[in-house]
Simulated assay, not measured.
Amino acid sequence: MFLLEDASGDGHVDIDEYVALYTALGLTAAQCREAFRRVQKEDAGEVTKEKFDELWEQYFHSENIDAPGNYIFGKFDF
Results as ranks from 00 to 15, higher is better:
48 T>L: 11
12 H>A: 15
78 F>M: 13
2 F>K: 05
5 E>S: 15
55 L>W: 03
22 Y>P: 00
61 H>S: 05
63 E>V: 03
78 F>E: 14
18 Y>F: 15
11 G>E: 14
32 C>V: 06
15 I>G: 12
34 E>C: 08
39 V>R: 02
73 F>G: 01
11 G>H: 11
43 D>Y: 02
75 K>C: 10
6 D>C: 07
71 Y>Q: 03
60 F>I: 06
32 C>M: 09
68 P>N: 07
31 Q>N: 05
20 A>M: 14
17 E>F: 08
50 E>H: 00
4 L>Y: 10
29 A>W: 05
33 R>P: 00
15 I>V: 15
17 E>S: 11
73 F>E: 05
11 G>F: 12
57 E>A: 06
62 S>Y: 08
38 R>A: 05
26 G>Y: 06
25 L>V: 03
41 K>I: 09
30 A>F: 04
48 T>I: 09
3 L>C: 15
77 D>S: 11
41 K>L: 11
1 M>S: 15
62 S>T: 13
50 E>P: 00
73 F>R: 01
53 D>M: 11
58 Q>P: 01
62 S>R: 04
53 D>A: 08
26 G>S: 09
45 G>Q: 09
52 F>K: 01
43 D>V: 07
36 F>G: 00
34 E>Q: 11
47 V>D: 02
32 C>W: 01
35 A>Y: 03
43 D>L: 10
64 N>V: 03
20 A>Y: 14
20 A>T: 15
50 E>A: 10
9 G>A: 09
71 Y>A: 09
37 R>S: 08
72 I>H: 03
10 D>S: 06
39 V>W: 03
41 K>V: 09
51 K>Q: 10
60 F>K: 00
9 G>Q: 13
30 A>Q: 12
24 A>F: 13
74 G>C: 10
42 E>D: 12
33 R>S: 02
67 A>G: 00
49 K>R: 11
75 K>G: 01
38 R>N: 03
24 A>K: 14
74 G>H: 07
30 A>R: 05
22 Y>S: 01
26 G>I: 10
50 E>N: 00
61 H>A: 06
73 F>Y: 08
31 Q>Y: 02
32 C>F: 05
65 I>M: 09
48 T>F: 06
74 G>V: 12
14 D>P: 02
70 N>T: 05
2 F>L: 13
37 R>W: 06
30 A>I: 14
76 F>A: 04
37 R>Y: 04
45 G>P: 02
56 W>Q: 05
17 E>Y: 07
53 D>S: 02
60 F>A: 02
18 Y>M: 08
55 L>T: 03
18 Y>L: 13
67 A>D: 08
40 Q>L: 02
35 A>L: 05
47 V>R: 00
8 S>W: 14
16 D>H: 12
35 A>P: 00
68 P>I: 06
14 D>C: 13
41 K>M: 11
36 F>D: 07
6 D>N: 12
2 F>W: 11
73 F>A: 06
15 I>L: 15
66 D>Y: 04
40 Q>V: 08
66 D>H: 01
26 G>T: 08
4 L>D: 15
7 A>D: 14
56 W>E: 06
65 I>K: 01
29 A>S: 14
32 C>T: 06
15 I>A: 14
12 H>E: 15
19 V>A: 08
10 D>E: 09
57 E>C: 03
61 H>Q: 05
1 M>E: 15
67 A>V: 05
53 D>Y: 01
49 K>E: 13
64 N>Y: 03
